[in-house]
Amino acid sequence: MGTHSIKLTINGKHYVEEVESRILLSDFIRENCGLTGTHVGCEHGVCGACTVIVNGTAVRSCLMFAVQTDGEEIQTVEGLSQDGELTPLQQNFKECHGLQCGFCTPGILMSAQDYLAKNPEPSTQELKEMLSGHLCRCTGYDGILKAIQKTVDENKQLALTEGS
């Protein structure tokens, strides 16, 4: 049961690491790479706190082994803001009280980031269904929904301005 050498990119930075096959991607990100923004909740795919973007798609990092991501590209919550500047989505979480304790926030941000990229004009119902993949034990869904909805509205407005 040897270890495996893996090369991958996280938030644009290259990593070469030796891992045991059984190491979960979530633990690898936190412990080997020191990126503790990705939170670990249930470790069986239910709570959504560990959601990251792998090759452009939001997935549960507790349901993948690190060894499976050899050669792949990963984005975690640390990779969202650029030069200390929050993304509009993050800014709206701040403005709309989209987080209380903040434990579920990184996962929701990564999910929403991917979801809005693929579905620019979702209905409120669709947003709620997307959010059903995340547990917020503070039950702060109202603020979370408002923050995402506000981002959708701003993006629409931006598209209109750019279009005209």
Partner: peptide
């Protein structure tokens, strides 16, 4: 298909 798990698990 939309009844399966959640968006995030259907992605994988």
């Amino acid at each position: 298909v939309p009844f399966i798990g959640h968006v995030q698990t259907r992605n994988r």
